[in-house]
Amino acid sequence: MKGFDYRRAGDPAGAVAAVAAAPGARYLAGGTNLVDLMKLGVEAPDLLVDVGRALDDRIEEGPDGSVRIGAAVRNSDLAAHPAVRRRRPALSQALLAGASGQLRNTATVGGNLLQRTRCPYFQDITKPCNRRDPGSGCPAVEGAHRDLAILGASDQCVATHPSDMAVALAALDAEAVVLGTAGQRTVPVAELHRLPGDHPERETVLEHGDLITDVLLPALPPGARSGYRKARDRASYAFALASVAAVLEVREGSVHRVALAFGAVAARPWRARTAEEALRGAPATAESFARAADAELAAARPLRDNGYKVPLTRNLTVRLLTDLAEGASR
């Protein structure tokens, strides 16, 4: 790790100005991923601008049921907040399925969204990686890729986004509020991360200096239920092999409203629009859910060792939607 300057930002605008002005600057919030990557040499900033205290760490529920989450809210606090825990169990469950108690106490909402892939080649600077070092190659396509992407990948990169939280946010139609030098804008969480294509190094739609200040959750219709399911090797403290977040509203036995997102299958939380389309108006049965999942996963392009993610994601989807349809809120 090389030396770096450290500056504590007083407010978000000051932070943006400081980072935008310095190409080698990075924002520091919880640091659970950034410090890890700095130790690995993947990140080597000249300047850290600490936004941990400049960003809001409050959660506010609006009168319409929408929620504004300050980007510095810690993962564990978000998971416990009634607006999330009771009203949006998918998000609470996703947060609590990730990392460990210690890490959730430290990691922030903004940082969780912007965490980097755990692809072993990305993390090892002695090996090629197009995402880290454009044009150097992607050894994962032929190498160790059991954990990597089946959807939306390219021959340049098969990385997955590791966040559990982001999958739930994508299904909940969350938006990130982004402050940049040109002002403020919102970006749907489901569109925050780019698919790799020919430029895997462009991981998000954010520009250098852009800062996520808040995450907005729209109000949920009263009849909608949500949930999150994750499969992993270890019973806890492990990244997902695959995960599914869903919001479902069933009326008179049919799917009235559905939002579905897959985790650990692509470089971003994968909003399953094809499946959603197939489900709208369909009977809320395991058969419909399976057909919808299959429709989405028809686009999957598994590699040698990660084809299991197709049936796994399908099974998780069927089980989660079935449980939600049956009224089980978890």
């Binding site: 450290y6 504590r8 520091l28 640091g31 659970t32 410090v35 890890d36 850290l48 600490d50 941990g52 460990s100 108690g101 210690q102 890490l103 106490n105 430290t106």
Partner: peptide
Amino acid sequence: CTVLVDGRRSNSCLLLAVA
């Protein structure tokens, strides 16, 4: 490396002291 920071448990290996 777990310690309590302001009463909450945290991995001290990932916390920069300066922050």
